[in-house]
Design a protein around this nucleic acid. Structure first.
Length: 557
RNA sequence: GUCCUGGUAGCUCAGCUGGAUAGAGCAAUGCCCUUCUAAGGCAUCGGUCGGGAGUUCGAAUCUCUCCCAGGACGCCA
């Protein structure tokens, strides 16, 4: 049952061929007191050459009364109130029947979508900035699965490039094996910071680092052994953070280094297609409306885009994707535009199915955080603080304190990261992340835990609306529940997890309003049963929403 | 300098395929635990939707222009 479609059909029939189906727009009134849906009649005014008010009056009179409780004409709008019993019955039965499958659809049937996300850089701290790629990517993965897609998740580790020339150079010159063994990432990132401090004074260090990277790319033994070591210790460190986040099921961990031996073919093809031009010693592809893309450095070493080209072709060949997503920050917009443009110039249309899922920067004091200056905040530390904070809230009758505080603390961090639209920059504030009241993850979790408590040891019977009252509190919940499948679909189309987060907050607010103002367990048997069915349905949808975002839903808190 | 983003309540943000009195949360103030979890509910306070012009019956939403902030602009990723 699609109430919008029902209304649209009724309106179409009422107009009796004078207005096309496509011209009929249905919207949701600003205020639920005004109605469930509304038909604005202003656009028909010119066609029918009548005033909107008059059209609305006539339309309201003609609308088939079977489906509606009330149809009103208010200053050019036709406001429609559906029969609450019919919708309530439908929505609750649907959810109780489908359970956590409610909201699933098949738009992605037999389609594959590759999602590249998280992708931390080896030998650098897993910073708070990387949380964004990780949580957004993970949520888009879950949302895509819910929409019926087959998903390949790729953690495209940043394990190659001139940065390793810098790192190896710095370690060789100032490093201490013992210290690195004790505290790998901390020590290595210190060396990385030192390198940049020193190269400020002596710019020739940059050339030294490039030379070291060139040796690494040529598989020189000394450089390779250090690289392997750095990579291993980094992965062990990262795993700790992934474990805390509860996000670690990647289908592939092929990082940049994996594409080492897959670049030459692409470069040759570029040459054969006469796209590669030598410019100031470097190999370049000229592009329209964009700065040229640098494919090879003047010393012959590869660059970021060279590896990304190899990656794109490899993914197309290996997974034959319908969509390929790159969950990477805003600042790389130009890079991905260039990447797509080069592939298009080579004559491949699959570039149109590659999407840069950009997101805003984590700012500190209004500025970008810099790993080079050692200023990034470690995600792991933030997570631990959030868990500590969660502990201070816990009630005495809870047994699994550690697990619960982890679920709540981590949930707060992930939810805070996802609730705002992707591309907005976020001023990182620990204080803000550690708030567990209001529009937060814990608020949603708490709402669910409350419901679970009501539901405990209660038997649910089949819905029976005899002698029951569907109050405004209940009706708001029903309409919200009804909206869920549409939100799931929209979230996929716009690659926007914040829609789910906002939805979860709205639903929780609607429920809490009900909970705070009406009694769930009443004297009237059918009413109590209806209320419990609503509780159950809200719980199912809240849990599912949280799951899509990668947030746990504890039963008690 | 060029090109992207963004500018809505003291703060953080919704709303942006044009529509009915611009909505939440936080903060502030006042209520509500002898009633199902107070991480909650209810209420009050709070807005030149960055400035200006244009299109329109109607603009926070579309166009232009200016101002402000952030980011990106060949040998980093």
């Amino acid at each position: 049952m699609d109430i919008k479609k029902i209304l649209r059909n009724d309106v179409f029939e009422a107009f009796n061929q004078e207005i096309l189906m496509e011209q009929i727009s249905i919207e949701k009134p600003k205020n639920s007191e005004m109605g469930d849906l509304a038909v604005p009649c202003f656009v028909y005014s010119k066609i029918l050459r009548k005033s909107p008010n008059l059209i609305a009056d006539e339309l309201a009179n003609k609308l088939n009364k079977d489906n509606y409780e009330k149809v009103e004409s208010v200053s050019g709008y036709v406001n429609v109130f559906f029969k609450k019993e019919i919708i309530t019955n439908f929505v609750l039965e649907e959810i109780i029947d489908k359970q956590e499958k409610y909201g699933e659809n098949e738009t992605g049937k037999s389609k594959t979508i590759v999602i590249d996300y998280s992708s931390p850089n080896i030998a650098k701290p897993f910073g708070i900035g990387h949380l964004r790629s990780t949580s957004i990517g993970n949520a888009i993965k879950n949302i895509s699965l819910k929409n019926g897609y087959k998903v390949v998740s790729v953690n495209h580790l940043g394990d190659w490039g001139t940065q390793f020339g810098k790192m190896i150079y710095a370690y060789t010159k100032w490093g201490n094996e013992q210290l690195v063994k004790e505290n790998p990432i901390t020590e290595l990132s210190k060396l990385y910071v030192k390198f940049h401090e020193e190269s400020e004074k002596d710019p020739t260090l940059e050339d030294e680092a490039r030379a070291v990277f060139k040796r690494l790319e040529d598989k020189n033994e000394y450089e390779m052994s250090l690289w392997t070591w750095f990579r291993e210790v980094s992965l062990i460190e990262f795993q700790k953070t992934y474990d805390l986040l509860g996000i670690n099921e990647f289908d592939s961990y092929d990082g940049e280094a994996f594409y080492n031996d897959k670049m030459d073919v692409i470069v040759d093809e570029l040459k054969n297609k006469k796209l590669l031009v030598t410019d100031q010693g470097a190999e370049v592809v000229y592009l329209d409306d964009m700065p040229p893309a640098l494919i090879k450095r003047s010393d012959g070493a590869s660059l970021y885009i060279t590896r990304d080209l190899a990656t794109a072709f490899y993914r197309k060949k290996t997974y034959s994707f319908d969509e390929s997503l790159y969950v990477v920050g805003n600042e790389q917009t130009l890079h991905f535009n260039q990447l797509k443009a080069v592939i298009k110039k080579m004559g491949y249309d699959f570039a149109d199915n590659m999407h840069h899922i950009n997101f805003g920067l984590m700012l500190q004091n209004g500025k970008k955080m810099s790993t080079r200056q050692g200023k990034s905040v470690k995600l792991h530390d933030v997570l631990l603080e959030a868990i500590d904070m969660a502990k201070t809230y816990i009630r005495d009758d809870v047994t699994n304190i550690d697990e619960l505080s982890k679920q709540v603390g981590i949930g707060a961090v992930i939810f805070a990261d996802l609730k705002n639209y992707r591309t907005n920059d976020i001023e990182f504030s620990l204080e803000e992340v550690l708030k567990f009241e209001g529009e937060t993850g814990p608020y949603v979790q708490y709402t669910n835990a409350r419901i679970m408590s009501v539901l405990r040891e209660k038997d649910l019977e089949k819905i029976n609306l005899e002698d029951t009252k569907i109050s405004d509190y209940i009706w708001n919940i029903i309409m919200k529940l009804y909206e869920y499948p549409e939100i799931v679909e929209k979230a996929k189309q716009s690659y926007d997890p914040s829609l789910i987060a906002k939805y979860a907050i709205d639903l929780a607010q609607n429920f809490n309003s009900f909970y705070g103002n009406e009694k769930i367990i009443s004297e009237q048997k059918n009413q109590t049963n209806l209320n419990l069915l609503i509780c159950k349905s809200v719980s199912i949808v809240l849990k599912e929403s949280l799951r899509l975002l990668g947030v746990k839903a504890p039963e008690k808190m």
